[in-house]
Design a protein around this nucleic acid. Structure first.
Lengths: 161, 161
DNA sequence: CGGAATGAGGAATTTTATTCCCTTTGAAAG
DNA sequence: CTTTCAAAGGGAATAAAATTCCTCATTCCG
């Protein structure tokens, strides 16, 4: 499905999606038309899910990241659905995982400062019934990237047998 | 610095940066030129740090997310620098935080499966001296967004006094 | 009451994306 | 071996979008 050329295209677009198709083509050794068609196809196929602008957290007053580990004794399907819907609606929650192990859910929350986190926390527990919440703050974001590793993408062989 | 209109522009671009400037202008009540200039300025000012394509993790064989909590007894400036450099070079590490509290560092790691995680883990500990590592796996990514909340951006008043 | 700065807009220009149509390649059928 | 078809690629025309250029209001000092 995805061959070596596609992978190189994805690598470029993951880093910077403003590079013109003609330039991408040049870098991967294709002319613009086939390169453009490959990109289109990957968008249709849902490999590329979107193109977004990234902002500097400091510049938009999102300097503090908190990780919130949630444990609950509620484990019904319905509860999870409601819980997920509530959480999803908080724009401060930028990531939300259901976990294996001790912790049931993990949130990454983005706020300007500890006070704002506290306000968020109060709004959160007002809305949902949680057994146990444990918050840890990040002091520094050393790395953050939206680029997924492409080394695990198995490129299709040009030929089989 | 950032006024209400800028904030609305950012909101649009955070969601989808392929929207034409003319259309953005229409939505925020500006013609294309001033809208374009505002976007340029926010890029120059570093508010917008880039535009990237997002990929479907499942489609690029990045189905498993692991959170790796690292504790160390090394706390020198030099060690951190070397550690950070090593970690940063792993494409599987998509996020990397220095934490407050018990855990010193937290990584989010993206791999195809548990076996690949194990291979990553071996490569990791081969390269750096870590006292304690604790890994938790995410069963499900319920929410993931690159959109930072803009509600905390204090819009400049058009006038003062 | 002048400008001078700031912000906005229309229209021309340039750059890119997109489409159309044709060529090449390679494998399978006959 | 040819023939045929499908998949990929490419060049050139066209459409759309970004970018530039110039002009027009408004406001704020001096």
């Amino acid at each position: 499905m995805i061959d070596r050329i596609d992978r190189r295209i994805l690598s470029i677009l993951q880093e910077d999606c403003t590079v013109p198709v003609a330039e991408i083509g040049r870098r991967v050794g294709l002319s613009t038309t086939p390169c453009w068609r490959r990109i289109q196809k990957m968008e249709e196929d849902g490999v590329i899910t979107g193109r977004v602008a990234l902002l500097d957290p400091a510049k938009v007053n999102a300097k503090v990241t908190a990780f919130v580990a949630i444990t609950t004794n509620q484990h019904t399907e319905d509860w999870l659905k409601k819980f997920a819907d509530v959480i999803r609606d908080f724009p401060e929650v930028v990531e939300f995982y259901r976990m294996a192990g001790q912790v049931d859910y993990l949130l990454r929350v983005t706020v300007p400062d500890i006070a704002a986190y506290d306000a968020f926390y109060k709004r959160l527990i007002a809305k949902i019934d949680i057994t146990d919440v444990s918050t840890t703050f990040a002091m520094e974001q050393i790395k953050y990237t939206t680029e997924l590793p492409l080394s695990y993408v198995v490129p299709e062989k040009p030929k089989a047998d």
